[in-house]
Amino acid sequence: MNVYPFITEILQILLVLAISPAFVGWVRALKCWSQGRTTAGMLQPYRDIMKLFAKDVFLAENASWIFRFTPYLVFGTAVLAGGIIPMLSVDLPLSATADVIVLVALFAIARFFTTLAGMDIGTAFGGMGSSREMTIASLSEPAMLMAIFTISLAARSTSLSQIVQVIYSGQSVLRPSMAFAFLAFVLISLAETGRIPVDNPATHLELTMIHEAMILEYSGRHLALIEWAGMMKLTLFMALGAALFFPWGIDNSGSAAGAFLSLVFLLLKLAAGGVVLVLIETGLAKMRLFRLTEFLGSAFLMATLGMLSFFILE
């Protein structure tokens, strides 16, 4: 048995763990620059996480085991997802264990437990966040599936490695279906990772927060795990978008040099993705909750148009 893919796999998981705080730091720094503020530096997320790990845990009196278990589970699914998405190489052992539908379901299980943890303490905020989160999820999931459907039509597969390979070697340059699917994917990613205009990651205002409302009662290492997993999730969605729509540079050969080259490409793509994210976030305002049906409806529309144009135009 060839051990090389396993080494790449472990390296990739470590890489995701290591660079995701830096990526979030990069996004925050860009945002500060674009808004004329001074930044705390790209390394601030590392310092935040270190600080949280060092602190004691304050637990509400009626917190149950679900509340304490959730951070570990959320972290675990994020790590597994980090092993599934092709970044350093196409040939990843874990990539075969789960196709893109399983990947979506992995994020869903993390969300399921986060919402339960939000309801565990019994505060109004937690319940509010959970209710909103599940509402948004139920609207974004059909759109996500449609986007996946469109991509898997082109690649004839739902396996991520396969999709990357097929799109990499695709003959066609201008594919309306992929363009539509990409637009849909961008909108869905904003919803799934809780960015503006769906949710504001920086707010703690009662009426606007969604994700923060659920994790309001966390502290210490629990909070550190959840924050870290959240950063990984953002990074992973970027990497997923890069792998599905811009797979150029991901190593196909299985050599160390190839893996290094993919790393360089990955960093470049992440940097560019961060710029796009910041442009979107500074350009848009947060939407009211009930305007999100239109937002996610448009995501569904895009994905469906992608699917239709695959049959009609290609």
Binding site: Y72, L73, F75, G76, T77, V79, L80, G83, L94, A96, T97, A98, D99, I101, V102, L106, R156, S157, T158, S159, Q162
Partner: peptide, 19 residues
């Protein structure tokens, strides 16, 4: 295999071991 694959045991074990 190229079309889609899912491995319940590995998904379960990896999540469990990370936890």
């Amino acid at each position: 295999r190229e079309h889609a694959s899912y491995s319940g045991p590995i998904v379960f074990l990896v999540i469990l071991s990370v936890i």
